[in-house]
Write a protein that binds this DNA or RNA. Sequence first.
DNA 1: TCTGCAATTTGCGCTGGAGCAAGGTTTGCT
DNA 2: AGCAAACCTTGCTCCAGCGCAAATTGCAGA
Lengths: 236, 236
Amino acid sequence: MDAAKKVLPRLDESLLTHLPPFSKLDRRQIRTILDQASSRRYEVGAHIFEEEDPADRFFMLLDGYVRVVRVTQTGEQVTALHIPAGQLLGIAKAIGRETYPATAVTATESIALSWPTRLWDTFVTEYDGFATETYKTVGHRVGEMNTRIVELATQQVEQRVANALLRLINQTGRKVEDGIEIDFPITRQDLSELTATTLHTVSRLLSGWEKQGFIESKRKRIKVCDPHALVELGQG
Amino acid sequence: MDAAKKVLPRLDESLLTHLPPFSKLDRRQIRTILDQASSRRYEVGAHIFEEEDPADRFFMLLDGYVRVVRVTQTGEQVTALHIPAGQLLGIAKAIGRETYPATAVTATESIALSWPTRLWDTFVTEYDGFATETYKTVGHRVGEMNTRIVELATQQVEQRVANALLRLINQTGRKVEDGIEIDFPITRQDLSELTATTLHTVSRLLSGWEKQGFIESKRKRIKVCDPHALVELGQG
DNA sequence: TCTGCAATTTGCGCTGGAGCAAGGTTTGCT
DNA sequence: AGCAAACCTTGCTCCAGCGCAAATTGCAGA
């Protein structure tokens, strides 16, 4: 048994009991699921899986944040989604695929459980609520992608960046003194890949907003002080 | 029984037997499915269902083409997908949603069968291959949306329009004298909604390509004569 | 055949934001 | 402490493509 894959001698049931895909299951079922799982820690920037690779395993992110990115022929990166702890990822099987549709990169140090994809059908049929919840997850992500498309198609860069920031604080925001901070390190470059612009433009926008007191920002850290102002900007 | 909903006294089994979601089923099963279906004809431009409406029914497009569009607060339309005959649509339930995520507008006169959403679970559990095929459809559409996002994020207008045209002839092209024609009427406006640009720019591009002999185009009709040239343009 | 609307073309000016360049600041490593 | 790498800021220039305007063409219905 690979040391990197089995950091804990025995995974605790409380890891899963409160997570939606597993919340309807009893102790015994959770035990079975955990005994089949591999647990692994990932460094920041690690690739959990790569676009086009065969989808051997599916994952539950226990801790950390993951960016789902695609890389173009010319090497540009486009971020499709951010996934916070508590969600499934790499669930290619749920959408009838044999390969991963994108690359998953950790935005922070992260911990994930994973199972071989051959167990997928068992999970779906045996475990009450698992199918429903995963399809909800899919639906939610489809909705996000849709929104993304509409934004890219109709909004100005300023609006897109404002909206991206709002979405980030909604999904992964942490309440702090004087505002809400994005809970993981994020660079101007990351934000530009999320909003289809350049790091320069993002930098200019953030500088402007900081002058107006809407946000505060250090290197890799962004705190939103006046969400409402961003909402206004986001509308146009 | 509403005359508009039951145009045929009895639907023929051959309608469904060759379509992937139903191809593994026997005559008796198909019969049951058809007996529960409503069949309906839609004028061009008709809305089969609307974004945010409760997903009462799911559909199989038997004939025609459908555009899946979203409308922004400001009234702009963005086309997310084109769906050709033979595919399911309105399958909100497959992605755990209670409402339709977008509006479906017919691009030609069309015919679709539909079933009440309460039958969805029965279809998924009772009919062999139905679930697998529908999830493949979902996966395919997710892939397309992903591609769309990457294109919008990284490509120039010229490349996007070229790629959109190529995708249209792949999905819905009809081989004709001297080229491949898009099999349904499509305006410059439609193309601009598909590529997130303006009808003016699309018009300029198409005029240019026509001069160079890559395409021929009449009102609402586009024929691609030199697909390879468009592929080149699409790369950048 | 005529008439009116819808679709298309084309010209022109303007601007959002990309690209380029240079310099400043923070962090982590030795 | 000193250094290198990563990250951030800011100024300047330029142009793809949008917005506006006006003319033209094709189609459907009377």
